[in-house]
């Protein structure tokens, strides 16, 4: 499964980067979303993928039964997703402001700092 996921991650990165290289700012936002999904999945893949072994300790026990999935990677991804939302919101609003000032969807018209 890790092999398959490696290509999924690669695909997401490629799609994200292609979008970020466009001149349209909306496409830049889409690229950012794809990129954060790709990065999260990359982390998830690297921690090892196990089916049906959530990192939970059964009631009454002190240790989980058998091997469980890596909880640390999950904790990292969990916060990354939420922060990703915050940062995305920030980026989107920033872009929206830029659009209002420059009145163009074209990144090439945003190259000057003193507009």
């Amino acid at each position: 499964m890790e092999t398959l996921m490696a290509f999924v991650v690669g695909g997401l990165f490629a799609a994200a980067i292609y979008m970020m290289l466009r001149r349209s700012i909306v496409k830049l936002v889409i690229g950012l979303i794809l990129l954060s999904n790709g990065a999260n999945l990359l982390l998830f893949t690297q921690a090892g993928m196990l089916r049906g072994a959530p990192p939970l300790v059964p009631l009454g026990a002190t240790q989980p039964e058998g091997v469980v999935a890596d909880p640390l990677a999950q904790a990292l991804i969990l916060t990354a997703i939420v922060i990703g939302f915050g940062v995305l919101a920030f980026a989107v609003v920033l872009i929206h402001r830029a659009y209002e000032v420059v009145e163009a969807d074209d990144m090439d018209q945003m190259k000057d700092t003193d507009t």
Binding site: E2, T3, M5, A6, F7, V9, G10, G11, L12, F13, A14, A15, A16, I17, Y18, L21, R22, G38, L42, T45, Q46, G48
Partner: peptide
């Protein structure tokens, strides 16, 4: 050109992911 760059980067990430796994 952009598609080629993006694909190259994607392939690189995929290979590194494989190697790291």
């Amino acid at each position: 050109r952009d598609a080629v760059v993006a694909l190259a980067f994607g392939v690189m990430v995929a290979l590194l992911s494989l190697a790291a796994s």
